[in-house]
Design a protein around this nucleic acid. Structure first.
Lengths: 193, 193
DNA sequence: GATTATATTGAGTATACGCTCAATGAGTTG
DNA sequence: CAACTCATTGAGCGTATACTCAATATAATC
């Protein structure tokens, strides 16, 4: 049984996390700690009672994001039977988290070193499943004989390029949802013989 | 005939520009105006005697960069007879300016709005030539029938992805020079029937 | 050579931000 | 109810940084 105090503390911490996540997703990582505290309805000092520093707050939020993405990517890998399925699933996950993911990739240089390689892990999980499916389809003669890691990089490159140039491709609505069809179709056309 | 004063002024301005360019290319856009003044061997105030604000300095430097890139891309378009030539030329230009270009794309969010769309112009010039060459090769049955703008975006996506993940692909030496062969080879394999 | 024009200087100002800490008051314990 | 614990508060500190301006030094002009 948790004491009233514990519950209060956890709830405050969660309020900070949720608020920071929302602000970061909508406005980027340059939001100040004062701003976050304000919107979370707590005092400025409270932020530092829960997190030793801004960096620690960032690491916590980005870490949690990374963990939940990793879980979704894992499930996705299990349930995809073909490259086409896999691309759909991959897009679906990214579409669901587009806002925050977009900030993460466009403002990476503002982030502490500790989280700079946030994707490395995730992407190697994805790469693993992707490569299995692709190798099979290459062996079956459906897909061209190009090194699988290059195919994977091409796919991620396309997606990131659209995200990265969202302002150009789709300033007022999510990019990925809008171009998912084109992206998938183009990629499939390119990799098949 | 320019007066001694004019020459002095222009030389000071140029020193500031050159120094800022060098520092931005090697360390990124978070360098302070004091730092730039210091390394340029002028006083802090001098920077603001030549540029109304930091933003104006940034706009000037990035604008000049953009103009010189545009010129090189233009020449490149003229002299490329095939898609393969074109890719080589494109890579060559980017390789020559990799450091600054990399900062531009990885730290874009730090830059003033006025320069956010720095590539739009450049890329439409490139796109124009690229599309001409590709359309021809599609008509000749060499290249797959995929919308040319998607092919162009795929190519830029690959390049930017490698630049953007330089720390991962090639932390200690230029990425593009190292992977130019792989990038071009993969892209050509993918687009040809 | 005296006077004027101006490029340069650098100490100083204003602001923003991360972070601290003594004070406060609500919750817990005996 | 009294004593204690601890989450929360917010004014205040230190630092970084863009930008200003009166003073200075040097070139141009007569």
């Amino acid at each position: 049984m948790k004491s009233k105090r514990q519950l209060q503390k956890e709830s405050t911490r969660q309020k900070i996390i949720d608020t920071a996540y929302r602000i970061y997703a909508t406005e980027g990582f340059s939001a100040s700690t004062a701003r976050i505290a304000n919107e979370a309805g707590v005092s400025h000092g409270t932020v530092f009672a829960h997190f030793k520093s801004l960096n620690e707050l960032l690491e916590c939020i980005i870490g949690e994001f990374q963990i939940s993405l990793a879980a979704e990517f894992h499930d996705m890998g299990e349930s995809s039977a073909s490259v086409s399925d896999f691309l759909d699933a991959h897009l679906k996950v990214l579409i669901a988290h587009e806002e925050f993911y977009l900030r993460l990739i466009t403002e990476r240089s503002l982030l502490p070193e500790e989280v700079q390689y946030v994707y490395a892990d995730n992407q190697s999980t994805i790469a693993h499943h992707f490569n299995l499916l692709l190798s099979r389809e290459i062996k079956n003669g459906i897909v061209k004989e190009v090194p699988v890691h290059m195919l994977f990089n091409t796919w991620l490159g396309m997606i990131h390029y659209y995200l990265w140039n969202k302002d150009f491709f789709s300033p007022d609505e999510p990019v990925l949802a809008r171009y998912a069809g084109d992206l998938k179709h183009t990629f499939i056309s390119l990799i098949t013989k």
